[in-house]
Amino acid sequence: MPETPHPLDPEVLAAQALMREAGVANGDILNPDLAAARAATARFQAFLNQGGPEVTSSEHHIDATPPLRLRLYRPAGAEGPLPVYLHIHGGGFGFGGLDTLDRWKREIAAEAGIAVAGLDYALAPEHPFPAAIGQVMAALRWLREDAAALGIDGDRLAIGGDSAGGNLALGALLRLRDAGAPMPRLGAIIYGMLSTRHDTSSHQRFGGGEYGLSTAKLERFWNNYLPDPALREAPEAAPLHADLADLPPLLLQAAALDPLLDDSLTLDQRLEAAEVPHALTVYEGVPHGFIAQTGFLSKARAARVELTAALLRALR
């Protein structure tokens, strides 16, 4: 790996050594064999998902285009209609599935005492924009309309996402606002992939690949997701360009060593100007994707605790 001029947290270095020893690494979108890259990501995520609390889970099929699977996690022994947090995984719109962040979602469900839902949304380039955002909207409708049968409270709902999932979560909030539909009580945008701009300071400092995610990888992800160049600055696809007024409270979390850092910093500034209640935490010494490593990183656990506290305030 190239030298890192900005030092990584010692726990990150120790975790990276364990991953090398285990022979796992995140898949590379620049690999011409996309199936092999996705398989590598699945093995990497399975390694990160080891351990954590036991919860109950169920899988559901939702009528959407393309068809959609959802996994619903519940704390062991929980009774009554539970608040629910819908989390949309990252992976550049091209990697990931139901098992992405499985341990993290189990931890949120157990710690907050709420239901947590995760999606297996359609991936690009096979399914470019707007397939995934359409599926997210279908999942939100399903969680509200079938709440009683699912044992959840559709009025106590939050939505969030990491990386590309942060894009989809923010995009869903904007669509709900524009439709005059009921809004979730909280949105969580975790190192969101919100703009196609690659000329920012954080891209210049952290986009060379030294910290995992790179500008070149992000460009490939965007090209796969938005094959029509006209959409690259369209608010519905790159929500950092949208009018952000009248959104519910938002929690923003960012990694300091991430080419996408400036997306979060700019979102923070734009939400301030739009007078949207929000909070931003930048976690120092960690790269993009760090929240998945709660088994190794104290800062991943701190970010999870911060989100859990925000969910409890909003939903209870």
Rank of each mutant, 00 (worst) to 15 (best):
A117Q: 01
R71L: 13
E107F: 14
S298D: 15
G94D: 05
W142A: 03
D155W: 07
L226S: 04
A242L: 07
A115R: 00
Y73S: 11
A36Q: 14
Y121E: 08
Y225N: 04
L315Q: 11
L226N: 02
S57W: 10
A300R: 02
L307D: 08
G160W: 00
I114E: 12
D178I: 10
T294Y: 00
H6K: 04
L72W: 05
F129M: 00
L226P: 10
S264W: 06
D146N: 15
F95R: 00
L257V: 06
A230I: 09
F221G: 07
R38E: 07
D33R: 06
T215E: 14
I291P: 08
A25Y: 06
A25Q: 14
A242W: 06
A40G: 05
V55L: 08
P130N: 05
A78P: 08
D258V: 14
A273T: 07
L251R: 13
A37N: 02
I152Q: 01
A35H: 03
A254D: 07
R144S: 12
P182H: 06
F296I: 09
P7G: 08
M19D: 14
P184I: 02
L174T: 00
L267S: 03
I62A: 03
H6M: 08
P182L: 11
A117Y: 05
Y85H: 15
K299W: 00
E210L: 11
P67I: 07
L123V: 09
L68Q: 12
L48A: 03
L48T: 01
D178A: 15
L247F: 15
L8V: 10
P235G: 04
L68E: 10
F296R: 13
P53G: 04
R232G: 01
D263N: 11
G171F: 00
A147M: 05
A147N: 10
G207I: 01
T56M: 13
D155M: 10
Q269R: 12
D9G: 01
S58N: 10
L271V: 04
E219H: 13
E219C: 14
L174M: 01
P83M: 03
E126T: 06
I291D: 05
E126M: 09
D262A: 04
L18C: 14
A39Y: 07
T215Q: 13
L271W: 06
L82I: 04
L250R: 12
E107H: 12
T266G: 14
A131V: 03
A138G: 15
R175M: 09
E59A: 14
G90L: 00
H278T: 00
H241T: 11
P75K: 08
P81V: 07
V136A: 05
I133K: 01
P128N: 06
D243N: 12
R38H: 09
A14I: 03
A139E: 00
P53F: 01
N223K: 08
A255V: 08
T266W: 07
F221I: 08
V305K: 12
L307K: 12
P81Y: 06
A310E: 07
L226W: 10
G151H: 11
V136L: 12
L168R: 09
A216H: 15
V24Y: 06
D63V: 04
A37P: 02
P235D: 02
A76L: 15
F93S: 03
N223T: 10
L240E: 05
L176H: 14
G166N: 13
G134N: 04
A22I: 02
G154W: 10
R301Y: 11
W222E: 11
P130H: 07
F221N: 11
E210Y: 09
A22D: 05
W222G: 03
T294G: 05
